[in-house]
Amino acid sequence: MKVFVTGSSGFIGKALAQRLSAENHEVLGLDKRPGPATNILCDILDAKRVQEAVQAATPDALVHLAARIDIDESADVSDYPANVEGVRNVIEAVRHTPSIKRTIWTSSQLVCRVDYRPSGDTDYNPDSSYGRSKVLTEQIVREQDGGGSQWCLVRPTTVWGPGMSAHYQRFLRMIQRGYYFHVGSAPLLKSFSYVGNISYQYRQLLQAPPEQVHRRTFYLADYEPLDLVAWGDAFQRALHARRIPRMPVFVARALAHTGDAAIALGLKQFPLTSRRLKNIMTQYQFDLSATEAVCGPLPNNFGEGIEQTVEWFKGLSPPKA
Rank of each mutant, 00 (worst) to 15 (best):
K48R: 02
R33S: 04
T282F: 07
L28C: 06
D115N: 02
A241F: 15
E23L: 14
L30F: 13
R19L: 15
A186Q: 07
D43T: 09
V159I: 12
H240F: 08
Y200M: 06
M164T: 10
S274N: 04
E85N: 03
R113D: 01
H182D: 13
V114S: 12
D31M: 04
T137C: 07
E92C: 08
G10K: 00
L136C: 14
V294G: 03
R246K: 14
L28R: 12
Y179E: 08
V310C: 08
A15V: 09
A93P: 13
P118D: 02
T103Q: 03
I104F: 01
G259F: 07
E304I: 07
A37K: 10
I40C: 02
Q236D: 10
Y124G: 01
A17V: 01
H240W: 03
S317I: 01
V249I: 06
K101L: 03
S21L: 12
S165K: 00
Y200T: 09
L188T: 12
A293G: 01
N24K: 10
L298K: 06
L277C: 10
I140F: 08
G120K: 11
V249G: 03
R19V: 07
I44L: 14
E52F: 05
Q212V: 07
P248C: 08
S99I: 06
A186S: 15
R177C: 09
Q18P: 05
K268T: 11
P187E: 10
Y284M: 12
N125W: 03
H167V: 05
L316Y: 00
D70G: 02
L153S: 10
R88H: 00
S199Y: 11
Q308S: 09
L226I: 15
G13P: 15
C42N: 02
G35S: 06
A252L: 09
Y223G: 09
R173C: 06
R113V: 01
E92Q: 12
L41D: 05
Q176S: 15
P36S: 13
E304R: 05
A241L: 14
V87I: 15
I280F: 03
R68N: 14
C295T: 11
E292K: 14
A238F: 06
P81A: 10
V154P: 09
K32H: 05
A82T: 10
A57W: 07
D76V: 10
D227F: 14
K134Q: 11
P187N: 15
E85I: 05
M247P: 13
Q308T: 11
D123I: 14
Q109V: 15
V135I: 12
P319C: 10
F250L: 05
D43W: 12
T309N: 00
S108V: 13
S165P: 03
E211M: 02
Y219H: 15
G10M: 08
L255I: 13
A67S: 11
A22K: 07
R102F: 12
L316A: 03
